[in-house]
Design a protein around this nucleic acid. Structure first.
Length: 199
DNA sequence: GGTGTGATCGTA
DNA sequence: ACGATCACACCA
């Protein structure tokens, strides 16, 4: 089901606002040695723009937590928040630019049974990956996957050249404080997809 | 469908 | 103290 080719480094080595819409429709896979393969098709993303973006973890400079953001593109930046959730980003741009794309939602395509076990609270399948922390939990990703090379695994992004059903729709980012970049149109999603974090 | 609130702890 | 969130209660 989840097949495709890794994306070239040049795909990731661009501004996150260019990479973000291009990530829609791509396959995010986690080949867990213990649980097997789980995979989703990416349907919702947000761009975070390094030191210039007050909403970005990179805004206040490099720390041990966000170091992966400041590294080379094509890696996974996984962070812990609200004392209980993990969220995952794709590192973009040049080495040191700290540009990244938050993965906010996916359409499950493989390993549905394992996702349901990991996300016992999900009432229906469309809740499995509808949200950044839900997606990360369903895929079985956490702190140990911070820094993963997305062209190598165990977490990877694949392109199976499936066209989007409709062109991406842009909107404002979710969960930001007023005045800290909340007005920027840096969220993209596949319109009408049932797995979005907001309907 | 919508809104409001508590959980829970690493980070700065 | 606060957070790139979630689940649940409750109202419509």
């Amino acid at each position: 089901v989840s097949r495709g080719s890794p994306l070239p480094l040049s795909f990731y080595a661009r501004d996150s606002r260019e990479v973000a819409p291009d990530l829609l429709g791509k396959i995010l896979v986690h080949d867990d040695p213990a649980r097997g393969r789980v995979a989703v098709r990416i349907v919702e993303v947000e761009a975070y723009c390094g030191a210039d973006d007050p909403a970005s973890h990179a805004f206040r400079g490099q720390t041990p937590r966000n170091a992966t953001m400041f590294g080379p593109p094509g890696r996974l930046y996984v962070y812990f928040t609200y004392g209980m959730h993990w969220c995952a980003n794709v590192v973009c741009g040049d080495d040191g630019s700290a540009s990244a794309v938050l993965l906010r939602a996916g359409a499950p395509v493989d390993g549905l049974d394992v996702m349901r076990e990991r996300r016992v609270k999900a009432r229906r399948d469309r809740d499995l990956c509808a949200g950044p922390a839900r997606l990360t939990q369903a895929l079985g990703l956490h702190g140990e996957h911070d820094g993963t090379d997305l062209r190598r695994g165990p977490a990877r992004i694949l392109d199976d050249r499936t066209p989007l059903p409709q062109p991406p729709v842009v909107s404002t980012r979710v969960g930001l404080k007023p005045g800290e970049g909340d007005e920027s149109l840096w969220r993209w999603c596949v319109p009408g997809d049932p797995n979005l974090s907001r309907r």
